[in-house]
């Protein structure tokens, strides 16, 4: 639940907070974009932790952000 996630994050260092958020987000992103999941997770981890928590709670928001990230990646690789 949200309280467990928030309290776990609050007790961690900034580096560990990002790592934990990545560990939680990665499998969700991998389900949407199996081949780009590592890069997309890395991109999204540059966002504020509070925004990342919202993405964890909202599959629709996460799906939208993943689509955005894919578009940026493709633009960079073009």
């Amino acid at each position: 639940g949200r309280c467990l996630i928030a309290s776990t994050l609050a007790s961690a260092s900034p580096e560990d907070q990002k790592k934990m958020l990545g560990e939680w987000l990665f499998p969700l992103i991998q389900a949407l974009q199996p081949t780009l999941a590592s890069k997309i997770t890395g991109m999204l981890l540059e966002m504020d932790n509070s925004e990342l928590l919202l993405l964890l709670e909202s599959p629709e928001s996460l799906c939208y952000k993943v689509d955005e990230a894919v578009a940026v990646l493709e633009a960079c690789q073009a």
């Binding site: 590592s38 890069k39 890395g42």
Partner: peptide, 22 residues
């Protein structure tokens, strides 16, 4: 430019080093 190594890739179980690049 310096965007060749961007974005930093996240791999489960590996310490996250993305903050070093900001």
């Amino acid at each position: 430019g310096s965007s060749i190594n961007w974005p930093p890739e996240f791999h489960p179980g590996v310490p996250w080093k993305g903050l070093q690049n900001i």
